[in-house]
């Protein structure tokens, strides 16, 4: 009964993956560094930032978020993302490994179905549900982000490990590897690229979703956006949105690079 849901989820993921790969990979490191440099310079020099925004959005009453500097918000955002995404990666990969071991195989189907199903929930809904359950502040936002960004990691870890050709595992066992050696020397290296792709999706979604964390008082770049929305000030909305986008793009670019260092089943078939 979940097959349709799964199809949709995987189609969505494929689409997202294509969009992201298409964007991140074509940018050269030089361009990326220049872009980040300009962005950070503006963030550190409010006067210049204000001048730029005044030019782009003429006739506003204010152009800068008063309660915190952009750099501080960026820092908050990064902490939020780093904590929740790292926890999600560690937990997601571990769970994916567990359910693909002989002892955990019984749970493979249900974990897979649940994570596919859960991924079709919009992230806003997850956060909305987390508020009544966990209240306001940094912690509930981290928990909500963790829950949502764990799904692509689990999915990809399972897909990656299940796709390891059985004869390779067989022959690894036949050469005298222990179970742990088979996992670390054969299965994980072969699945690494798919797993990292999952972490990449997870982190990028996380960075975007974390802006909604401001709703529950977790701070970060979302604070600027929401403040702008409340005051009908698009200069602020723009500042927050572009900052989050730069962050997401940079993370995506780094993971794209990392992925390429690992073995890919696709290059096998060439």
């Amino acid at each position: 009964m979940y097959s349709l849901v799964q199809d949709q989820a995987s189609a969505r993921e494929r689409f997202r993956a294509r969009m992201l790969m298409g964007s991140a990979d074509i940018v050269s490191p030089v361009l990326l560094v220049i872009g980040i440099g300009i962005f950070l310079w503006l963030a550190a020099n409010p006067a210049q930032l204000e001048a730029l925004l005044r030019f782009a959005f003429p006739g506003r009453s204010s152009y800068l978020y008063e309660r915190a500097s952009l750099l501080a918000l960026l820092g908050e955002h990064l902490v939020l993302v780093a904590v929740s995404a790292t926890a999600a990666a560690v937990f997601g990969i571990s769970l994916g490994i567990l359910v693909t071991r002989p002892a955990g195989r019984d749970f493979l189907g249900i974990v897979r179905d649940l994570s596919s199903l859960a991924q079709t929930f919009p992230p806003v809904a997850v956060l909305a549900l987390a508020v009544p359950a966990l209240g306001f502040g940094f912690q509930p936002a981290v928990v909500a982000l963790f829950v949502y960004s764990i799904l692509p990691v689990i999915n990809n870890t399972i897909s990656g490990l299940v796709a390891v050709p059985p004869d390779i595992v067989e022959v690894s066992r036949g050469m005298g590897m222990t179970r742990v050696q088979i996992l670390f020397r054969t299965e994980l290296p072969v699945a690494a690229r798919v797993i990292i792709a999952g972490v990449r999706t997870s982190v990028v979604i996380n960075i975007g979703t974390a802006t909604i964390g401001a709703v529950v008082g977790a701070g970060g770049l979302g604070a600027v956006i929401i403040s702008g929305l409340v005051r009908d000030n698009y200069a602020l909305v723009f500042t927050g949105a572009v900052s989050a986008a730069v962050l997401a793009f940079t993370a995506d670019w780094c993971f794209a690079r990392l992925e390429r260092r690992f073995y890919s089943a696709r290059s096998d078939r060439s």
């Binding site: 050709p165 004869d167 390779i168 067989e170 022959v171 054969t186 072969v190 690494a192 089943a265 096998d268």
Partner: peptide
Amino acid sequence: IQSVGLLPH
């Protein structure tokens, strides 16, 4: 074995 099973990475 028949499929050789060289570790691809």
